[in-house]
């Protein structure tokens, strides 16, 4: 449905925080299945010591959630819930359960559905599956879209990016 170049065209996140690969299905008006493959080459495994057991390669919950949130952002974009120059920001979470973590080799499948939409606000629900198991259940992810320009610092400060 959307390959990775099309995913990039709709998301503003970039590596190391671009955590979505494809959209497999979009079912109008407002549900989708999006995927991310987890590999051993991810940034988060850079510091894992040699000899660590497989439990050391549990995919971090924070990144799993960010990936789910990016799937919700893509649904916001595909369902045209707001203008493209606005950025959907995750502002609220209710009742999330993280089950046995995913690992390198797993394919995350985010099943995301729109629950409510009003103006700049959208609420999503869904779950993430990997290797046939549910790894994340999210009852409510609240998103508010804001114009990108409004998110710039009022007094711009240069940010040193390590090169």
């Amino acid at each position: 449905m959307l390959d990775h170049s099309q995913v990039r065209a709709r998301l503003r996140q970039r590596p190391p925080m671009l955590l979505l690969d494809t959209v497999r299905e979009f079912t109008p008006p407002a549900s989708l299945v999006a995927t991310k493959a987890i590999t051993g080459g991810e940034d988060c495994y850079r510091g894992v010591a040699d000899g660590a057991g497989i439990d050391g390669f549990a995919y971090p919950a924070a990144l799993l959630l960010e990936s789910f949130g990016q799937a919700a952002s893509l649904l916001w974009s595909l369902a045209e819930l707001g203008p493209p120059e606005e950025v959907p920001l995750m502002v609220g979470l209710r009742d999330l359960a993280f089950a046995t973590p995913a690992r390198p080799g797993d394919l995350l499948e985010h099943h995301v559905r729109l629950r409510h939409h009003s103006g700049a606000l959208a609420e999503f629900t869904g779950e993430t599956r990997a290797a046939g198991r549910i790894v994340l259940t999210a009852r409510s992810v609240l998103v508010v879209s804001r114009p990108a320009a409004s998110l710039l610092p009022t007094t711009p400060e240069p940010v040193a990016i390590e090169g």
Binding site: E42, C44, Y45, R46, G47, V48, A49, D50, A52, D55, G56, F57, A58, Y59, P60, A62, L63
Partner: peptide, 9 residues
């Protein structure tokens, strides 16, 4: 450093 026992964000 490659010294962690788990993945790090």
């Amino acid at each position: 450093p490659a010294s962690s026992r788990t993945a790090t964000v």
